[in-house]
């Protein structure tokens, strides 16, 4: 995630104590952002961490009112020992395992196709591939929910007339169905990133590969793909972070099928804890666990990809 700001222009100029580039003026420009950052990110997380260390305990038969007691990491232990939370996590993990390679594979495939010498009408194809990204997640999930619903869906009825009975919304298929929705939403976006990277692959390298007798397909996978590894790394990072956010699609599909329960993924579990079970400390603990996991995963991905690049 390093940014090319400390470029040569800065390092070649001699150190100059010019007024108006120091901390006091920088503060004027930074204060607005860090104010909202503090209010909308740091304070909520700190508050949630604080809240997650306490629990409401009811005395006696529950009529005596609740008192708040410090329980340390007790809520975290409870959340991590909760069967539905763990089941949700397992589903999320399975979703990531299916979604991340599928998405990157599809996106890389289309980017390479667009970059192929024989590809026509590149602009039109890019626009069409990107179009689903203009559709809000809620609407995308709704469209697909109906495309999965027997009776409404042309896909289901076409398959049925061909003798294939598939219930996309059944317990076993709803997760791959959800992967499909997310791929539909995000493939085009990643195609554009990877295609942009492919465009900057030096022509000489490809010429050399051609002279050496490498065909188009060989060039695509052995020359172009390794050369856009940094862009693939960025796409991987944002895809992993994005897949941990999973909430909208299952929430929408839960209105169309009973296969998606109210605690289907960790985000839904936390939502359910806060609004149906009224256990705010546990909701806070679940959110913190998810944020920590996201931080850990993105750290691993960044380490992994930057290591790959430096070699």
């Amino acid at each position: 995630m390093s940014v090319r700001t400390s470029g040569p222009s800065r390092s070649t100029t001699k150190p100059r104590p010019i007024q108006g580039t120091g901390g006091r003026t920088a503060a004027i420009f930074l204060v607005p952002f860090f104010t909202v950052f503090l209010v909308a990110m740091i304070a909520p997380v700190v508050y949630a961490v604080g809240l997650s260390l306490f629990a409401e305990q009811r005395s006696g038969l529950g009529f005596g009112g609740a008192e708040t007691v410090f329980v340390g990491l007790g809520n975290y232990v409870d959340v991590l020992q909760n069967d539905t939370f763990i089941a949700g996590f397992a589903r999320l993990a399975l979703y990531c395992v299916l979604y991340v390679p599928t998405l990157l594979g599809v996106a890389l495939g289309f980017a390479l196709l667009l970059d192929a010498v024989v590809a026509k009408a590149r602009r039109a194809f890019q626009l069409l591939l990107f179009l689903p990204h203009a559709v809000p997640g809620v609407i995308a999930a709704l469209i697909w929910a109906y495309l999965y619903t027997p009776g409404v869906s042309p896909i289901v009825s076409a398959l049925a007339s061909g003798g294939i009975q598939i219930d996309f919304l059944s317990v076993h298929l709803v997760l791959p169905s959800m992967v499909n929705i997310a791929v539909w939403e995000w493939a085009g976006y990643n195609v554009i990133i990877l295609f942009t990277a492919l465009q900057s692959v030096p022509r000489e390298v490809l010429e050399a590969a051609r002279v050496d007798g490498a065909g188009e397909i060989r060039t695509a996978f052995s020359i172009k793909t390794p050369l856009i590894a940094p862009a693939l790394g960025v796409a991987l990072l944002f895809t992993v972070i994005g897949s941990l956010q999973l909430f909208t699609e299952p929430k929408i599909l839960s209105t169309a099928t009973t296969a998606v329960t109210s605690t289907w993924v960790p985000n839904m579990w936390a939502y359910d804890a806060a609004f149906n079970r009224n256990n705010l400390p546990q909701a806070a603990a679940a959110s913190i666990i998810l944020a920590l996991l996201a931080g850990l995963l993105s750290w691993v991905v960044t380490r992994f990809t930057s290591k790959g690049n430096s070699r």
Binding site: A40, Y47, A284, A286, L290, A291, A294
Partner: peptide
């Protein structure tokens, strides 16, 4: 790097 949805419930709280 922190997913948006992970801060939503803390924001609500």
């Amino acid at each position: 790097l922190i997913p948006n949805t992970a801060t939503v419930i803390p924001l609500y709280l």
